[in-house]
Every structure is written in structure tokens, then in C-alpha cells.
Design a protein around this nucleic acid. Structure first.
Lengths: 345, 345
DNA sequence: CTGAAAGCGCTTACAG
DNA sequence: CTGAAAGCGCTTACAG
């Protein structure tokens, strides 16, 4: 690794000032054609490119955004991230990706680090622990000190900033309604995530649908499996002791795993038990049967969040801060893990 | 967003020089306890933290590494990235993630951008086009100008740098051998990637195994599907006109899709046709039958690559550059898409 | 047409 | 014990 060419070096070679070189390279009309030509030529040949860090210090803009997600080994976040990366790069921004692994402490440490001038703005989906403990000081501090935040998917109403979400309540409502219309009456709900706002909303939507259709609620089929409990055991117990003719998985793994466990116990999908999953994983096409799911359009969600963030970053400062919460429309992707809608509907 | 506290501001308040503040905050023994105390207290209360960009400029270290991958919507790269992110964060590095989408131009643009002092080192898995065109100038330039590179998985022997790979040749050999031992004689190979070195190695390993076991080669069952060709049509044609009793998918999608197409045509897996896939996607557990695959230990690969890179970044400069190529061991994960090994073996 | 100066936010060797 | 100076690599308003 050799020394990178700097303005200083070029200046020395041509016996001019650094300022002149800087201007020459920006093709400033202040500089004579002759000097410009020779400097530009030399710079090109040396493959000179201005040091981004120096520019960042000068402009107080890094052209970098941060993304903090609870997990990356999860189709939803991968897709969202993909959308974010796409838009950011289109607009000339780099993206620093950080995984909080559901830990508040990691989230705080990361934000503190990013806060020191490293990024122009932050996209974040809250860690479980952050939501559980309702601790948001680090976010407010970031907004105070470093720049705008856009929250996506796992958000908190307590933080005053832009947000991009899906309508979890309605979307769970519609999934439940769809199952009811296909003739299901004993609809279970399964999740591995606790203390997460979106899970609560989804369960509420599910409950409301049952209520509206006069279907009695069986609390034992609302299965939020806390860390430390064995997923398989919980599901088996539920299947053995409760009447269940449909399962809504609140995230990918709950849905697929539940389906496989049910099949292993001899149930036919969808006739004995129907399955609907949140999030459209590409692999749902390949399971047997292919899984009906709620497409949250995660790539689009990522794109939207990134667009809002960048527009906030680039908007002239002093503009009054009006925060918006954008709701991404979801669609039900019908595949073979649910029955057709019954005739009487 | 208020103004961030700087040394200058603190200096002004206490009527001391910036240097004094700087030293006080580093608890330098040069400074009197009294001044240190008042400055430290104030800084703490103001939540002062030094500007990372200024430090980067000073130290010529950004504590950031870059990762360029051909895709992120691909379980292999997601896992590798996860490993990278993990190690980087442990060691106090941020990671900038960039997706090249298989395009050389994107790869060049990204590297040029990162080259300007933004990162201390780079992890890269080459885009298809880069390998096809054998264009590596941008990589050499980066090494010259910006810092070390570690290539992973999709590498090129032409670039003199550290590399982390799996033994694609042997690993394809072993997969083929395993199929042979389960009684398969008409083993097809399917890939959607062309012009990628690892694909060539995998095919070579496959061919060698056939040769060693005296199994005739049928070139029409070596199906590298080029962009623009329809995957489904190609596979159907192969199944209809060639004798095939096993398919090796050289990446996840080829394997799963081939399996589903074969099933749709009435073949039983594994009895009529066995399936082995490269890369261990978590979802292979959930397909029917669950897919036998080659676990490339991608998280570990990412970790290893990141560790090598960071050690190179942190090693005292001037050390002689000895480059290593580390080969990650693969393991065959037997599931239900392959038959048990035949008795006579 | 060219350059000296000030500055972005910081550190450190050197004077006093 | 404290501070002025030089410097990281750059830009830009201002003088000449």
C-alpha cells in the first residue's frame, strides 16, 4: 500500500498552492487553462481522488446512513435491508449495517458509536429488549445530536420521529377472517416473539376478527412462546389438548415449524389444519403444501424507509419537523396451506 | 438537532485552550486535578463524545470495513455476512455493506467510493461479471491505495491477497460419490450461475467422481442455465429427454426448484430422483422431503474472513505480506432427499 | 490568475 | 500545569 496522492503532493510538484490545485481540479474559472490542464492531467494519471473523510469533516455530512436491525438471519429483515441498500446506493449513500441481536445494550452501544458523526441518519427496527423495557433515551439522544431517525416495523409510539409500518392489526384481522371464510373455527396463533408491539397488534387484530364473527376465543390456542420454552413441545401440547383447525404463524419460523410438527402428527394441511404465515419468504413456495402468507412487501418497506430518511437528511435544516407514519399495504398470498373460501361466503 | 459539544466550546466555557481540554478528557497527568475534574464533569453532563470523523482523519484509521457481495437475497451470503458483522462488531469495527448485483460496474463504483479513505479494509465476493470479464484492476488499485482485501467464496487466483474458500472440487466430488454409493447412475448437475469459478470447480469435482467410478458422462445433464433461459423449461426438457436419477443443485434455488419441478412431473424423491444441494439453507429442513445438502459453514466462513482482514489491518505495517488461502471444511448433511447408502458399499 | 488564511474537530510534541 | 503550533486533507471567501 503506497501513499495516496493528496493535494499537498500535487501542489509541491507544480510549485503552486494547495488552494490552486483544489480549484484546478474542480475546473474553477479562476484558474488559468494552462495550470488547470497540467494539474488535471497529472491528477488523473495519479488517479487522485479526494479523501472522503476530510470532506466529511468539512461538510459535516458523511453520505452514510446506519441501519440497526434485531436480526439478519430472518427473511423479513434481509428483504427490508435489501430495499434500504438499494435506495441508499442509488442516492449515493453508504450503509452501515448493525445487528442488535435483540439486545438493548448492543443497540445503545451501536447508536452511541454511530452518533459521533459517523452517519447522517439512522434506520432502526427496535430490539425486543428495547420494546420490553421501553427504553428510548438513546434514540432521542441520537436525534438531538446526530440526525434524523426513521423507525421501521418494530417501532415505538413514544419516540417522535418518522415511521414505516404495516397495518398489523388489520392484516391479522384479514388473515383470521380469511381462515373463517374457509370454514375454520378453531384458529390458533403462534409466535416466538414476546414483548414486541407488532405481535400485540397482530393478536388484537386476530381477537377482533373472532369477536366480529362470533367465534369463541380459546386462550390456550394463543401461543406466545417465551424464550427458554421449547417450541416443539409447546405446539405438540397445543395440538394434543386443544381443538385446532388453523394456525396463524406470526413470523416465518413459527408458521413453517408448526406446519411440519402438525404434519408429523398426521394432520393434513390444509384439510385438518390450515396455515397462514406472516411475511412472504421465498421458500414458502417450496414447502409442501406451499404456504399461504401475508406479504408485507418488505423490500418496499425498506425502500420507503430509506427514501424518507434521505429526504429528511437532505431537506434544508430549520424546516419545521413534521413526522409521518407511513403504512405499507399488505396482501394475502393464497397458496395451498389454506382451503378455498367456502361457498356460503 | 442541536449543535454537538466540541472541545472548542468546552475550552471557551472554562477559558482554557483546546489542548488542555483534550488532555483533561484523556485524564492526562499533565493537567491539574482541579481543571480535570471540572472539565470532565462538564463534558460528562454535556454528553461529550469525540467526533469520529476528526479522529479518522487524524489517525488515518476509520475502524470501518467494507463488504461487497453479489447478492443479499441468498442464504449463503446472508449467513456469511452475519458472520462478518459479528466478528467486526466484536472487534470494534463498523461494516459498510454493498451489494454488487452481479455487476462489474457496480463493483468498481463501490470500490472507488470506499477507496477514498472510508474503510480500513475490504471483504469481497466477486460479481459474476467480474469473473466473466476477468477484470481485477479495481481490486489491485484498492490494495495499492486503501488497504488489505480478503476475498471469500467467489475469488480469483489472479489477485494476490488473502482468500477464504471452501474446497469446491472435493466437496462436489464427495456429493457425487455419495449419490453413486446410494445407487444413482444418472446424476445431473444444475446451476443458474455461469462464468463463476466455483461453479467450474464444482463441475470438475463432479466429473472426476464419475470418472473414478467409471460412470459415463452425459453432457446433456450438465445444466448450466444462462441468464435469459427459463429455468423451468430447461429442467423439464432435461427430465423428459434424459435419464436422470439424481440432481445436484449447485446453489439453493437450483436444488429446490429442480426438486419441485421433478415432483410436479410425478417423480418421487429420493426414489426416482435424489437431490443434493450446495449450501445449507435453514429452510431445507422444511421441504418435503427435507433436502440433503452440503453445509459450507457460511457463518464460519464470514467470521474467518473478517478475522483475517482485521488482523491484516491491525498488523504493524511494513510486515512482509504473506497471503494465505484458507479452506473451510464442508460437511454433508444427510436428510431425506437422498437414499441411504447401498449395502454393497 | 494565484495564494494566504481560516476552518472542519481533534491530538501531540514542544515551549514556557 | 497550560497553551501555541503544526498537522490530518480538504474548501472557500478574501486579498493581491
Amino acid at each position: 500500500m503506497k501513499q495516496r496522492t493528496t493535494l499537498k503532493q500535487i501542489a509541491k510538484i507544480f510549485n503552486v498552492s494547495i488552494a490552486t490545485v483544489s480549484k484546478a481540479l474542480k475546473d474553477s474559472h479562476e484558474i488559468s487553462i494552462a495550470t488547470k490542464l497540467k494539474i488535471q492531467e497529472y491528477a488523473k494519471q495519479q488517479n487522485y481522488r479526494p479523501n472522503s473523510i476530510a470532506l466529511s469533516l468539512l461538510n459535516k455530512k458523511t453520505k452514510t446512513i446506519g441501519v440497526i436491525m434485531p436480526s439478519i438471519l430472518n427473511p423479513f429483515f434481509v428483504k427490508t435491508f435489501s430495499g434500504i441498500e438499494h435506495v441508499a446506493n442509488d442516492k449515493g449513500y453508504n450503509v452501515i449495517a448493525i445487528v442488535s441481536h435483540g439486545k438493548l445494550e448492543k443497540e445503545i452501544a451501536s447508536i452511541n458509536m454511530l452518533e459521533n458523526g459517523l452517519i447522517d441518519g439512522l434506520l432502526i427496527s427496535l430490539s425486543e429488549e428495547t420494546e420490553a423495557k421501553q427504553h428510548f433515551k438513546h434514540l432521542e439522544e441520537f436525534i438531538d445530536n446526530a440526525g434524523p431517525i426513521v423507525m421501521f416495523d418494530r417501532i415505538s409510539d413514544s419516540v417522535n420521529t418518522d415511521k414505516v409500518i404495516v397495518d398489523d392489526f388489520n392484516c391479522a384481522y384479514k388473515a383470521t377472517e380469511h381462515l373463517i371464510k374457509t370454514g375454520c373455527k378453531h384458529i390458533a396463533v403462534v409466535s416466538t416473539l414476546d414483548n414486541v408491539g407488532i405481535i400485540k397488534l397482530r393478536i388484537d387484530g386476530y381477537l377482533k376478527a373472532l369477536e366480529d364473527y362470533n367465534i369463541p376465543i380459546n386462550k390456550k390456542t394463543i401461543n406466545v412462546i417465551k424464550p427458554g420454552y421449547d417450541f416443539e413441545t409447546e405446539i405438540k401440547t397445543m395440538l394434543d389438548y386443544q381443538k385446532v383447525d388453523a394456525i396463524i404463524g406470526l413470523e416465518e419460523f413459527s408458521a413453517v415449524e408448526s406446519m411440519v410438527i402438525a404434519q408429523d402428527r398426521g394432520y393434513t394441511i390444509p384439510n385438518d389444519i390450515s396455515i397462514i404465515s406472516f411475511t412472504n419468504s421465498d421458500f414458502f413456495k417450496y414447502t409442501k403444501p406451499a404456504i399461504t402468507c401475508i406479504n408485507q412487501h418488505s423490500v418496499f418497506m425498506g425502500k420507503t424507509a430509506a427514501e424518507i430518511l434521505i429526504s429528511k437528511i437532505e431537506q434544508p435544516s430549520g424546516t419545521t419537523d413534521i413526522f409521518e407514519t407511513k403504512t405499507i399495504k399488505t396482501t394475502l398470498v393464497e397458496r395451498n396451506s389454506t382451503k378455498p373460501i367456502a361457498n356460503n361466503y
